[in-house]
Design a protein around this nucleic acid. Structure first.
Ligand SMILES: [Mn+2]
Ligand SMILES: [Mn+2]
Ligand SMILES: [Zn+2]
Ligand SMILES: [Zn+2]
Lengths: 141, 141
DNA sequence: TTATTTGTTTGGAATAATTCTAATGTTGTG
DNA sequence: CACAACATTAGAATTATTCCAAACAAATAA
C-alpha cells in the first residue's frame, strides 16, 4: 500500500480517492499552494472534483496535522497598535487574540539577500477562559 | 498638539480628521479589532465615515509601521506539507513563500493555562529575486 | 443478496471580506 | 479666486470561503 494511504488511515481519515490525490499533491508540491491552486492542478486528472472537496480535505488534513494551514487569523485581518514586539495567541473558540512576550531581535534568522519588513509569530489553540468554560459544561451534575 | 497628529505627520501621513480618529482609536483599543470593528465603533461619531476610508487608513498606518496588520498571507490561505518545523518568508512583490529554518520547540513561550495547537512564524518583505529584478530595471542605460 | 445507514462528493448558491471606481469634497498653492 | 493634488464617500465588483441539498459510494445489517 502506498504510504499516502496508510498515513491517512493512521490519522483517522478514510482514504477516499479524492483525499489520497489531494494529500499526494501536497506531499509532492512544496510550493505553498492555495486551495484554488490545488483544485486547478487536479481537476484535469479528476474532472468531477469539486472545490468544496478540496477545502474539506485540506481542512481535515490540517486538523490532523498532516499539512499546515498558513494563515494567522481567520476570517478577517486584525489590526494592532505597533507597541513593543510581542507574539499573538488566537483562540479558535472565542476568536480573541492574546498578546504574549516575544522578542524578535534576539532570534533574527533572515534569509540572506532578503529584506524583512515585518514579522509575526502566531500561536493557535484554545485560551484559558474557553478551556475553563468547557470543563464546567462537562462537569457531572 | 495632540501626539496623535504629530505621530501621523512624522510618519508622512497627512492628519485628516478621519485618519486622526482612526489612529486614535487604534491607540486606545488594544483589542486587535478588524477593519469592520473599527468602522462600526467610529461611525456613530463620524456618520459619513466610509468603510473604504477605514481600509485605506489602516493600510497606510500599517505601511508606515504605526500599526501592525495581523495576517500571515494574503489574500488567500496557503497550505504546506507538514514536514519539520520551519518559518516562512512571504514576498509582497511576487507572493512566493520561502521556507527558512526555525525551531519552535527551543523557544516555547506558551501562555500558562492555554493550549497551543499550532504555531507559525512569518516574515514579510521582498525576496532576493525581486530585489535583483528591481535593481536591474533601475540600472542606468 | 438486498435494504439500510453512514459518510463523501458534487455543484451551485450564499456569505463575507476586501478592493475598485467614479463622483464629490477638501486642502494647499500661485 | 482658480487650479491641482489629494482624500473621502457610497456602492458596485471581485474574490475567497462556506453552506446546502441532492446524488453517490462504502459499510453494515437483515
Ligand atoms: Mn497584540
Ligand atoms: Mn513551508
Ligand atoms: Zn477563547
Ligand atoms: Zn519576490
Amino acid at each position: 500500500m502506498g504510504s499516502v494511504v496508510s498515513e491517512l488511515e493512521n490519522a483517522g481519515i478514510k482514504p477516499s480517492y479524492q483525499r489520497v490525490r489531494i494529500f499526494e499533491y501536497m506531499q509532492m508540491n512544496r510550493t505553498h499552494p492555495t486551495a484554488d491552486q490545488v483544485f486547478l492542478d487536479l481537476k484535469d486528472a479528476i474532472p468531477t472534483l469539486a472545490k468544496a472537496t478540496v477545502y474539506n480535505t485540506l481542512h481535515a488534513l490540517a486538523e490532523k496535522g498532516l499539512i499546515r494551514e498558513l494563515s494567522t487569523v481567520q476570517p478577517s485581518t486584525r489590526y494592532d497598535y505597533a507597541a513593543e514586539d510581542h507574539g499573538h495567541f488566537t483562540c479558535r473558540i472565542c476568536n480573541r487574540i492574546y498578546d504574549f512576550p516575544y522578542d524578535f531581535d534576539s532570534r533574527h534568522s533572515a534569509l540572506s539577500g532578503f529584506v524583512v519588513e515585518s514579522q509575526e509569530i502566531v500561536q493557535k489553540g484554545i485560551c484559558q477562559a474557553c478551556l475553563k468554560k468547557a470543563q464546567q459544561n462537562s462537569a457531572f451534575p
